[in-house]
Design a binder for these strands. Structure first.
Lengths: 114, 114
DNA sequence: TTACAATATATGAAATATTATATATATGTC
DNA sequence: GACATATATATAATATTTCATATATTGTAA
């Protein structure tokens, strides 16, 4: 993971909010992220695709939903950066988490089998 | 320090190399950075000015040189991110450190008095 | 199969960032 | 003061990024 490319991924408000929300919730689908950050769906989708192509996120299709989570193959230093950023910037995400909590009809997550 | 603005600062190769070199060496002047990363002086100067305006670096003039170091007022989480990035990306900087070491006539740093 | 909802992608316009060149300013030395 | 070195800035050209709209794909349910 090239550090410049990694930080380019974090250097956009939409992408950083999505990443932080996913980091916080482990896994979220496009419609949940769209609701949480109050942006239009194609915009969210495009940024998620970029994060996936760069290797920061992995996706998993379940029925009509596509769920994203942080890539387990991300180098440790990058995971540390994400965790540190989340932990120290709770205020940055407060509104988004509130919107997510208020959201009705959230898709059920099938437990990943071991 | 807004996290998006912070990561925008890190999301450029010239700026990230300068930041990492300064993090590694504590303090460097424009001519040392210009030599280390092998870029033209106005380009380096411009990016350093941006890092200063955003609050990541502070500068100090000593004679004809201007020295930059990481701002002591940077929030802890941001300092942690810089340190973690430096520690885990030594290869990224190897050439730049070699060039810096080979550089002749480096300006002497006056000890900061306590 | 059709209708519908969720998600993904393509395109082009607008905004933004980066770059090189040229020029300006500041400092130190003679 | 004249000159050399170090650094900063302005400008214009170029490249990149972002966004909204439109279109395509996938899955579900009737």
């Amino acid at each position: 993971m090239n550090p410049v490319q990694f930080y380019k991924c974090l250097a956009d408000e939409t992408r950083l909010r999505c990443l932080m929300l996913i980091e916080h919730e482990q896994e979220l689908c496009v419609c949940e992220l769209t609701e949480a950050i109050d942006e239009i769906q194609p915009k969210v989708s495009r940024h998620l695709a970029q994060l996936r192509q760069c290797g920061l996120l992995v996706d998993r299709r379940q029925g009509q939903w596509v769920f994203y989570r942080v890539s387990p193959e991300l180098p440790d230093w990058a995971k540390t950066v994400l965790a540190e950023t989340l932990e120290s910037n709770q205020a940055f995400l407060a509104d988004n988490l509130k919107r997510l909590g208020r959201m009705g009809d959230r898709p059920a997550r099938a437990m990943a089998c071991c």
